[in-house]
Design a binder for these strands. Structure first.
Lengths: 129, 129
DNA sequence: CTTGATGTATTATTTAAACTAATACACTTA
DNA sequence: TAAGTGTATTAGTTTAAATAATACATCAAG
């Protein structure tokens, strides 16, 4: 379900965050589905529970999961995810990315066709579920 | 010209890289223009020269600047910037970003109109120079 | 040819962040 | 009640970032 890469120079909790986001975004984990507990995942990955805790806390702040003491952690419903702060961050990231793409000489048409292709590929993938 | 943020949790050399990229991408620094020397910038920012050196080395690898021993560091000509490796990285970043934007419910049209807006804004800005 | 500036490299040290470890507590469910 | 959950705290270790002090090769100017 989750594989860590120790050659990766990024912190473990970042890797966990990214992998978990992917699982949620790609629909592998469904809304309100329970995800492994802090201790379970720590044991599975043979790392410290505190590291999982940090990853989960970040994911909760970003709106991807919610946690209930005594019960566990769960995939957040979409409504919770769509918060303006996150949207602003994503837009800012998009601006940076496009700025660099323009700089290396990509035309608007090239960029948009990339967006189009990516969008289509993702839609196809989601329809398979 | 360059302002560091010590509340930022990212490493200083990352901040320097990002700021320098912005200056180049936004056309503030022109092709073949000389940028501050390692020692100059270190003194200006009151940080260690080795930190600047690391930032500059990274920027050179990514194709944004080139350095000549004994002379200084300069903004790279565009042709050098367009390398396939960098393009692949940018495309991968774009894929991740769009995936998350789709997840939070943005339609293809919304994303493309964002791209369109960003592109136009940047073109206007560049024409002012 | 000397001088001062440049990029580059190396080694050692300090500082900060990431990670581990061991507990503790409040809450939920069976 | 017992076992599992999230959460918090404190301490220690490990790793990365940043500093510090040099050294060397190159280039331009005097």
């Amino acid at each position: 379900m989750l594989q860590l890469d120790y050659r990766d120079r990024r912190p473990l909790y970042e890797q966990i965050k990214e992998k978990m986001k992917e699982l949620i975004i790609n629909g592998i984990l469904k809304q309100d589905e329970r995800i492994p507990s802090v201790r379970e995942l720590a044991q599975l990955l043979t790392i410290n529970p505190n590291t999982i805790q940090k990853a989960y806390k970040d994911l909760e702040v970003e709106g991807f999961i919610y946690s209930i003491r005594g019960r566990g952690s769960f995939v957040a419903p979409l409504n919770d995810v769509i918060n303006q702060t996150r949207l602003n961050e994503l837009t800012k990231d998009l601006e940076k990315l496009i700025a660099e793409m323009m700089y290396v000489g990509l035309t608007k048409e090239q960029i948009i066709s990339s967006v189009d292709r990516i969008y289509k590929e993702r839609q196809d993938k989601m329809e398979d579920d």
